[in-house]
């Protein structure tokens, strides 16, 4: 059962920002993640600021330069079923279509998906862990089978739960934020915060700030994007391992592109190692094998998530092979 909270549904972004800037306020977009956090009383919420009175934050449109503007309140199902997104930003459509369940995709928003709280089960239940202001991480020597292999930095070992975030980073998207001090654009790649920077925050959002829209630059010709997600069950589950790719090809040769992992780190994790190996090369069996091996270089598995090394390697091999076949 949800605890009580003050509630408001402002009519303007400015009013929402004003309300969010005070007290322990939380923004309510689709609410799918916030309801769970409230139910588990993970953090105190004095006030819920509903964004549902802000229709201007909804919708998908093409920009003049051929890029894409996505309102932060656009439902994930609207995104995954949008013809332009499917045709030109396939990796994002796939990622949005892999989130949760149909009902969650109908309700959950893109903005909410990238701002969602971690799914670490210690964080989500009645353990007072580091991220909740406690003195200890329970996962580091506990049940850490779903935790990170990169970026834990010896403090907090969550993985970022979003499927769309890695796809957006791969597509070089930018988030437009609005806050008490005006609006600013932040590349998605810089939007997420590692625990070593701040163990109690997942994003750069300042108090009172919200994501209002996501912009994706026009894809350069020859770019193919994809998202692959491996999970313990085939629906309604977070990624054990996932990879978003946006690779630009010149016939069979990869010119450049991004490879971004989910289920790997506290933030969407760019695998520059894989990017470097494939850049400028044809995706031959040898190149693919080298890239698969490289994806886990530098990984620091915990006691129970060592399988992720083999999983990421296998998944990269499979995905690059598919990319090569369609090249």
């Amino acid at each position: 059962m949800l605890p009580s909270f003050d509630y408001i549904r402002p009519k303007s972004v400015q009013a929402a920002i004003t309300h969010l800037a005070t007290g322990s306020a939380q923004a309510h977009a689709g609410g799918t993640d916030l309801m769970g956090c409230l139910r588990e009383r993970i953090f105190p919420v004095g006030k819920v600021v509903s964004l549902s009175g802000l229709p201007e934050l909804r919708g998908v449109s093409e920009t003049a330069d051929g890029g894409l503007r996505i309102g932060a309140l656009t439902a994930l199902s609207a995104l995954s079923e949008h013809p332009i997104v499917i045709k030109r930003f396939g990796g994002l459509a796939q990622a949005a279509g892999e989130v949760g369940s149909p009902q969650l995709r109908n309700q959950g928003t893109l903005g909410g998906n990238i701002c969602q709280k971690p799914r670490c089960w210690y964080y989500r239940t009645d353990f007072t862990c580091l991220r909740k202001g406690g003195g200890t991480c329970f996962a580091v020597d506990g049940e850490n089978q779903f935790h990170c292999i990169f970026g834990g930095g010896g403090t907090c070992f969550i993985v970022h739960p979003s499927d769309t975030a890695p796809a957006l980073v791969a597509l070089n998207a930018t988030a437009r934020l609005a806050g008490p001090r005006g609006s600013r654009d932040v590349p998605l790649e810089k939007f997420f915060v590692l625990p070593e920077v701040d163990v109690q925050r997942e994003t750069v959002l300042a108090r009172g700030e919200i994501v209002t829209e996501i912009r994706i630059p026009p894809p350069v010709s020859g770019t193919r994007s994809s998202y692959r997600k491996v999970r313990a069950r085939r629906s309604w589950d977070f990624a054990l391992a996932g990879v978003a790719m946006a690779l630009r090809f010149d016939r069979k040769r990869v010119i450049d592109g991004r490879v971004v992992l989910s289920g790997a780190a506290p933030i969407p994790w760019r695998s520059k190692e894989v990017e470097q190996i494939v850049r400028g090369k044809e995706l031959t069996v040898d190149v693919i094998a080298a890239a698969a091996k490289a994806v886990t270089s530098g990984a620091e598995p915990l006691e129970k998530n060592g399988y992720k090394l083999a999983l990421f390697q296998g998944m990269i091999e499979e995905e690059l092979t598919l990319m090569a076949a369609s090249a």
């Binding site: 799914r119 089960w121 009645d126 069950r233 629906s235 309604w236 589950d237």
Partner: peptide
Amino acid sequence: KMVNRNWHDYKLPTAL
């Protein structure tokens, strides 16, 4: 303590 006391973390088979 039990860490997966819900239907997200304790996984029943779905239609898929």
